[in-house]
Write a protein that binds this DNA or RNA. Structure first.
Length: 413
RNA sequence: CGGGAUGUAGCAUAGUGGUAGUGUGCUCGGUUUGGGACCGAGUGGUCCGGGUUCGAUUCCCGGCAUCCCGACCA
């Protein structure tokens, strides 16, 4: 993509109404636009990042047997009444509206009810199990207070996977493999070293669930960590006596940290299958409720976390895996012909390249390049040509080096 | 939802009961060309509604919006 054609514009200053670092940088660099509190647009650059995050999530979900589908946002009340989650007294994040044809609808803030109801038509035997459908789909949550940039919004995409199992063993096995798949996702987007599988409240379903918490000053959650024993506990269940007893630890053994919840996995037991009457026939011809779980990741929150964690004073620093482009080619000087030719060669090699062909001063190109944060910067200028080729610099490194065109292609191979 | 603050140009900001200023951006001309250049000329603005007043961007009331703290966040 030629930068002169790219729909984006960098800003020197952050909008005064954004305090969160993730939103400041993403807005300044032209990735996102705030339409209203808690609702952001993803511009071409931002969408490329989100699509890459989604693709990583898809690959890892598929690798553990997930199958992607897509459900509607519009929800019918009777389903949610059966699980006692329709009333605003029980669930305070609903957006609701009325049908012109008569009756109420809700905008889905999660999809347990919808997927469970759907599965009734497809699950009848133990032979149909296990099944692991997932989607990447819009959630609406009427938060009292949207905040922290793209980390807590009122409308956002979520990857939600639901597990349907015949036995507890089947469920436990999937639950664990999903936890491992989640860590692979966090590893691939570059935040694994700060992300911990954390004990958290199980809500009404089980004693505990697990959250994946990424240590960050910008976090809204508080966790207690013991690195040696590999134990991380959300503050909300810290005072659970059983938990401390089980691990033989006390509060003094743990370090308090702020963190961002980047994912969660939940054992649901048979709460939903019983309420909505989703059952199967086992090998002995007896009817049993399906054992369920739900597993969520918010791609935009993940993107914001990466920005928060990896950026520096000059701007965003994307890991290769989710950068909008791999190479930022910058042409300096009057004559762009060599840069044009390199740009075409990179495209022929299917290298994702953003080519700064604009007629602006070098300083502005460098500043924009740092702000946008593409991993590899390649400068072609009279100076670089005289030095023997192209100047290559990683966004994470201070110094550039001169390489030949062939060496560049070897690097990118 | 409780508390606090703020709404002035695309963005960031100053100021005033009487013609609204600066930086940046954008347009044009010129000089420049390796870290957001310089000179000149332009462009563009007081959140909405009501009140007080000869006159309101400023004061008052109401609304809306945004941010922050708290509560909330299966």
């Amino acid at each position: 993509m030629r930068q002169s054609d790219l729909f984006t514009k960098t800003l020197k200053e952050s909008p005064s109404d954004e305090q969160a670092l993730n939103a400041q940088l993403l807005i300044r660099a032209g990735y996102i636009y705030k339409n209203m509190a808690g609702a952001y647009s993803f511009l071409p650059l931002g969408l490329r990042v989100i699509n890459k995050v989604n693709q990583i999530i898809r690959e890892e979900m598929d690798s553990i047997g997930g199958q992607e589908l897509h459900m509607p946002s519009l929800q019918k009340p009777d389903l949610w009444q059966k699980t006692d989650r329709w009333s605003d007294n029980n669930v305070d994040v609903w957006f609701k509206s009325n049908l012109k044809a008569g009756g109420e609808v809700g905008f889905a803030w999660t999809h347990e009810e919808a997927i469970t109801d759907l599965m009734k038509q497809y699950i009848s035997s133990y032979k149909d199990l296990p099944f692991f459908p997932y989607q990447i789909q819009t959630k609406f949550r009427n938060e009292m207070r949207a905040k922290s940039g793209i980390m807590r919004t009122r409308e956002f995409d979520m990857k939600d996977l639901y597990s349907f199992c015949a036995t507890q063993e089947q469920h436990d096995s999937f639950y664990n493999s999903c936890a491992e798949a989640y860590m692979r996702v966090f590893s691939r987007v570059g935040i694994a070293d700060k992300t911990y599988k954390t004990f958290a409240s199980g809500g009404a379903f089980t004693q505990f669930s697990h959250e994946f918490q990424t240590l960050a000053e910008a976090g809204e959650d508080i966790v207690y960590i013991n690195e040696e024993k590999g134990i991380t506990i959300n503050e909300e269940v810290l005072n659970d006596v059983d938990l401390q007893k089980e691990f033989g630890i006390s509060k003094e053994d743990l370090t308090k940290k702020k963190s961002i919840e980047v994912g969660n996995i939940f054992s649901l037991g048979t709460k939903f299958s019983e309420a909505l009457n989703l059952s199967f026939t086992d090998t002995e011809s007896s009817k049993k409720p399906v054992i369920m779980g739900s597993y969520g990741i918010g791609p935009a929150r993940l993107m914001g976390t990466v920005v928060d964690l990896l950026s520096d004073e000059s701007g965003i620093v994307w890991p290769e895996s989710i950068a909008p482009y791999r190479v930022h080619l910058i042409a300096i000087g009057e004559d762009n012909s060599q840069a044009n030719s390199l740009y075409n060669k990179l495209k022929e090699q299917d290298v994702e390249v953003l080519y700064d062909d604009r007629d602006v001063r070098p300083g502005q190109k460098f500043a924009d390049s740092d702000l946008i944060g593409i991993p590899t910067r390649v400068v072609i200028s009279p100076k670089s040509i005289e030095a023997g080729g192209l100047e290559v610099k990683k966004r994470t490194e201070k110094d550039a080096k001169i390489v030949t065109e062939q060496e560049l292609f070897d690097m990118l191979a």
